[in-house]
């Protein structure tokens, strides 16, 4: 059951994707874990804050996602850069190694809107712990929406017997966040209501953008944390959370 239900042709080779928010299930245990606690160790006071933030998410979030399919090319002698719609992206060795066998690339954006981040900012002034928890819930929701969008693309491509790669975003895996500007220049202006500032920061902040490689020879791989220097990366934390969860299940 996916949050994203069907694609709708937007301009050019772009599609927006319809969503049904109730299909995005935010697990309280996952939020608890991302805050650092185990399920039984969190105080009831903070547990209630998580419940309130999750409840409100469903009434205020405005989930939007969209994508464009582009031909995937490699500049001559490429080792760490790719060519999409006339733009050379210096994606770095890690991302290049995962994308190099692609035939097409899905350039995408996905957002939960700006209501949660505005609420978090307001609460940080009054009750910082609550503001922090709202922000954590919003980040988890944006990542989950991006996961479900990824699954939607996987299903779409499977119809043509094509595989997909992991998604890669500027700012991660040694790919400079400044390349967001090139990525956004390929998409229609203000696509899905997301804009970019001079510093390559997306507005709304709780948005995810990136590239997914598509082709017969590409594969999805586990995170490549061993080769990356970003120790506080959200994907490293996510991987650790998944490993912890697996260990608990294995112990049972």
């Amino acid at each position: 059951m996916n949050l994203f239900t069907r694609k709708v042709k937007a301009e050019g080779n772009c599609y927006s994707v319809k969503s049904e928010i109730e299909k995005l299930i935010l697990e309280k245990d996952e939020i608890i874990s991302s805050l650092g606690y185990s399920t039984n160790s969190i105080d009831e006071h903070f547990g209630k804050m998580i419940d309130i933030a999750i409840d409100k998410f469903y009434s205020v979030a405005e989930i939007k996602a969209g994508y464009k399919i582009a031909d995937f090319e490699k500049p001559e002698g490429a080792k760490d850069n790719i060519l999409l719609e006339g733009h050379v992206f210096n994606v770095g060795k890690i991302v290049y190694s995962q994308l190099k066998k692609s035939e097409k690339a899905v350039i995408f954006v996905c957002t939960i809107g700006d209501k949660m981040e505005k609420w978090a900012k307001k609460e940080l002034q009054n009750d910082a712990a609550f503001g922090f928890i709202i922000d954590t819930v919003a980040s988890a929701a944006a990542e989950k929406a991006a996961d479900m969008f990824h699954n939607f693309i996987s299903d779409e491509m499977e119809k043509d017997d094509l595989n997909i790669t992991n998604r890669y975003s500027p700012g991660y895996c040694n790919w400079s966040v400044a390349e967001q500007h090139k990525l956004f220049s390929i998409l229609p202006a203000n696509f899905c209501g997301i804009s970019l500032n001079e510093s390559a920061l997306m507005n709304p902040i709780k948005s995810v953008s990136g590239i997914i490689g598509v082709g017969k020879e590409v594969t999805w791989n586990d995170y490549l944390c061993d080769t990356c220097l970003m120790k506080e990366c959200i994907y490293r934390k996510k991987k650790q959370t998944e490993l912890n969860k697996k260990e608990v299940t294995d112990d049972r």
């Binding site: 805050l35 903070f46 804050m49 910082a128 712990a129 922090f132």
Partner: peptide
């Protein structure tokens, strides 16, 4: 020592 996390720290600051 990871006995408490950011929310507790913020309550102390409050």
């Amino acid at each position: 020592r990871n006995e408490v996390f950011v929310p507790e720290l913020l309550m102390a600051a409050k």
